[in-house]
Each structure stands twice: as structure tokens, then as C-alpha cells.
């Protein structure tokens, strides 16, 4: 389906949506929101793009393989930050005790490991939404061809 208005509007809207998503992710330790909500916003922007254009255009931006890698690496970042704390001599997910720099409270660079963790969660959630969407569409196309 070719819809000019939809394509134009989404082309304008998608960057802002993504920027807002990144804002929510990076301010997870300062304001409401965080990894999950920010990741969901970024994921939704990619789904909007793929819906307004088509799957081929969407996969050109983020391929199924890339979303798979991002999905796994999001989880691995979280676990990795936790394990890093063990290597630094604290308990799992230790923050200040493990020696993560805390920064100034209220600034963007504060909270130590929390920002890395929300980043991991954000990547994970965004990539999961995109992967799920691709999987559903590809399944649909596979069954369409089958019939």
C-alpha cells in the first residue's frame, strides 16, 4: 500500500520519536521512565517506519540479524555490568562499592552503573519489539506464500 501522507508524516516524526526515546533511556536515573519505557518508544518508532514504508525498507535500516544481536547484547550488557562489579571486588550489581564513579547528583552523568544498566535494558526492549515485529511479519509472509 502506497500512502504518501503516512510516509511523509512518519518520515518527519520518526527522528523526534527516537530522540525522545533516547532522552527517556538516558534520563532513567533522573526522571520517570527509564530503560523499558524509552526502549519501547524507540522500538515503536522503528515499527512505525516499517509499517509506513514496508518490511524491506525497515530491514534496510535495522536488519533482522542486527536486531537479534542488539536484543542479546542488551541483556548481556545488564548481566555484564553485574559481573563487572564482581570482578571489581563487590557483590553482583554492586555500584558505588564496586568503584563506579557516581558523578554529581542531578547531572546526566550520575548514578554510576545505573545508566549503563538502563542503556542495556533500553537496547534490549527496543530490539525485542523490533525482532518480534519482524518475526510476526515474516511468519505471515511465509504462510501467505504457502497458501
Amino acid at each position: 500500500m502506497e500512502d504518501l501522507i503516512l510516509r511523509y508524516v512518519s518520515r518527519i516524526v520518526v527522528p523526534f520519536v527516537q530522540l525522545y526515546g533516547l532522552y527517556v533511556v538516558f534520563h532513567g536515573h533522573l526522571s520517570p521512565g527509564g530503560g523499558f519505557s524509552g526502549g519501547a518508544i524507540i522500538g515503536a518508532s522503528m515499527i512505525l517506519y516499517a509499517l509506513a514504508f514496508n518490511l524491506a525498507a525497515g530491514t534496510k535500516k535495522i536488519s533482522h540479524d542486527l536486531s537479534l544481536i542488539l536484543e542479546s547484547s542488551g541483556g548481556l550488557i545488564y548481566a555484564g555490568v553485574g559481573l563487572l562489579a564482581i570482578f571489581l571486588g563487590a557483590n553482583f550489581l554492586g555500584n558505588m562499592v564496586a568503584g563506579f564513579p557516581l558523578g554529581t547528583p542531578g547531572n546526566l552523568f550520575s548514578g554510576g552503573a545505573i545508566m549503563l544498566i538502563t542503556l542495556g535494558v533500553g537496547i534490549k526492549v527496543a530490539a525485542t519489539m523490533i525482532t518480534l515485529f519482524y518475526s510476526l511479519i515474516e511468519e505471515e509472509q511465509a504462510t501467505d506464500e504457502h497458501h
Binding site: L68, S72, G75, L76, A79, G82, L83, I86, N91, F92
Partner: peptide, 18 residues
Amino acid sequence: HLPVLAIVLPLVFAYLMP
């Protein structure tokens, strides 16, 4: 750290499997 490793290592590998 054994207790946490017993939980987290299977989780990490669950993410690596795909």
C-alpha cells in the same frame, strides 16, 4: 559469589544462544 553465578550464568547463556 557462587549463589549469584549459579543464577546469572544460565541467564547470560540464554541470551547468547540466539
